[in-house]
Design a protein around this nucleic acid. Structure first.
Lengths: 164, 164
DNA sequence: TTGACTTTTGGAATAAATTGGATTATTTTG
DNA sequence: CAAAATAATCCAATTTATTCCAAAAGTCAA
């Protein structure tokens, strides 16, 4: 059985809470007992990862203190992950409350519908319009690539030559 | 005996379910006991693979969490495979329920007829009109390729000087 | 510090949708 | 043409989603 796959539309209530579908809910519960981490992505959406997954992401930074003293890029990385990440626990009813600043950042407004995407290692929450745009980019790219592949297949060369 | 060959037209019920023909049904049952994976294709249709086939396609990436934290391209890959793929099990009556969003994507609307194509490693479900168009493209491409091949065969050079 | 008020949280009730099964209709086969 | 197999429809039971309400916590002013 695949984890964190598929997508849902769901509404975000007046208090900025969303309820996970049973599928995602059990994925989170199995993974880390419902301890999750919110994180803002540069793509303009927010991610919800099981805590252990997030720790794996951050473990990849060896010797942070030393590097912070000498690298501005690294300090900015620390700033981004530090400031744009917050932990929470999924409630008994399977709900999470999205902090105000994350809502503002990702434009997921109370009372509207949002898209919850499985991304294999967790989920992402998107403003519907923005996801449409993002998906258009991804799919458009795949289609273009396909077209080129087809075009290349038409070109006659030694490799695909067979004689009459 | 060939697996996943042939095609059917079948109707999709009011709840977005389709019933596989006995042929495809037994192919799925033999392959993975009815554990299947839905996957949306950039061509605008939806594939249904036995789960093991999908896992072969999506051979697991090493350290996905780390890569996700640092690469936008990788996050897009996760998004594509995560959001556009969902697992299910074929019911005792040989039915599957196609997730709402995938129906919308592939334009396979409840109450209409759809085409189920065998593709050797699984099946694809197409909107009838779209399949007609796709089939036209496939055949058109092969004809074009044939024409070019014939033209190339006319050109005299060392490689084909002994040919017909 | 206390009391009134607002906001947030957790839970329950209600409404909607989905699921599984069985029945009915249709097609195919002998 | 009859019997079997397959496809499609319908219905009840369950699950899921949404709304609503009450309790708790936090704010602010007197």
């Amino acid at each position: 059985m695949l984890s964190f796959c598929g997508q849902d539309r769901c509404s975000i209530d007046a208090n900025g809470r969303i309820k996970f579908s049973p599928r995602f809910l059990s994925d989170f519960m199995e993974h880390n007992g419902g301890d999750v981490v919110f994180h803002c992505l540069p793509e303009g959406a927010m991610a919800v990862y099981p805590e252990d997954i997030y720790l794996q992401m951050r473990r990849s930074e060896p010797k942070p203190a030393e590097r912070a003293s000498s690298s501005m890029v690294f300090r900015r990385t620390l700033r981004r992950f530090g400031a744009m990440t917050q932990s929470d626990k999924i409630s008994t009813q399977g709900r999470i409350t999205i902090p105000q600043m994350y809502r503002d950042y990702a434009e997921i407004h109370p009372g509207t519908e949002v898209v919850v995407l499985g991304i294999e290692i967790g989920v992402e929450i998107w403003n519907c319009e923005k996801w449409k745009e993002e998906f258009g980019k991804i799919n458009g790219h795949l289609r273009d690539k396909g077209e080129r592949e087809m075009a290349a297949d038409l070109v006659f060369n030694k490799e695909n030559k067979d004689e009459l």
